[in-house]
């Protein structure tokens, strides 16, 4: 049990997917200008990440390992993720138009989001079992939502601040991210 808590905490804060593993930087910088869109993107990624990690883990254990073709990992995973995103999009559109309205425009962007493929591969290379995969992926995803949310609030403030001309836009966003990363990395020693 303690291991699971440690795993969840590390995934959420200390090894935060954006600030310490550098996955999902594109949406982190691209969709974080407004709080609502940051949250929409965050939850869309969380949703797809959990489903795709479960599917890829099962496929890897019971198909790729059984047939001894582990080297097909990258190709299989990206195809699974691309088709999953498509399926999720169609499914949500049919079942819940409200949710589709909130997440819809972010879903196609997720196929090339390295966070989703990255977590699927990390679960395999860290040799997580099924339970660990679910916990790790959920908390990595929640960490993504959390950082997107605080970062978007900071950017809303920065927009109103007198930033030097050369630093406007992405440079100042990166420097703010650096300060956030320092804070997050200091939580690493707790467990």
């Amino acid at each position: 049990m303690e291991n699971i808590i440690a795993l969840a905490f590390t995934a959420f804060i200390a090894e935060n997917i954006i600030l310490s593993q550098f996955l999902g930087i594109c949406p982190f910088l691209g969709v974080s200008k407004k709080r609502s869109s940051a949250l929409g993107m965050g939850f869309a990624v969380l949703f797809v990440m959990i489903i795709s990690s479960i599917v890829t883990w099962v496929l890897y254990k019971y198909v790729l390992e059984a047939l001894d073709i582990q080297y097909m990992r990258t190709i299989v995973f990206i195809i699974v993720i691309a088709s999953l995103v498509q399926m999720v999009e169609t499914f949500i559109k049919k079942v819940s138009p409200g949710l589709y309205k909130a997440l819809g425009i972010y879903l196609p962007l997720i196929t090339t989001n390295c966070a989703v493929l990255g977590v699927a591969i990390l679960n395999i290379s860290k040799e997580h079992n099924f339970g660990e995969t679910i916990v790790y992926t959920t908390f990595i995803g929640l960490g993504f939502v959390f950082v997107m949310f605080i970062f978007s609030m900071m950017r809303e403030k920065i927009d109103k601040a007198p930033v030097p001309k050369a630093f406007q836009g992405i440079p100042i966003a990166l420097i703010v991210a650096a300060i956030l990363a320092i804070i997050f990395s200091r939580f690493g020693g707790i467990f």
Binding site: L19, S20, F22, P164, K165, A166, F167, Q168, I170, P171, I172, A173, L174, I175, A177, A178, I179, A181, I182, S185
Partner: peptide
Amino acid sequence: QPAGAFLSFGLILAAITA
């Protein structure tokens, strides 16, 4: 460390913009 990556990239990008 990770924080340095963000900081360096931000500074270099700002220098290039300037």
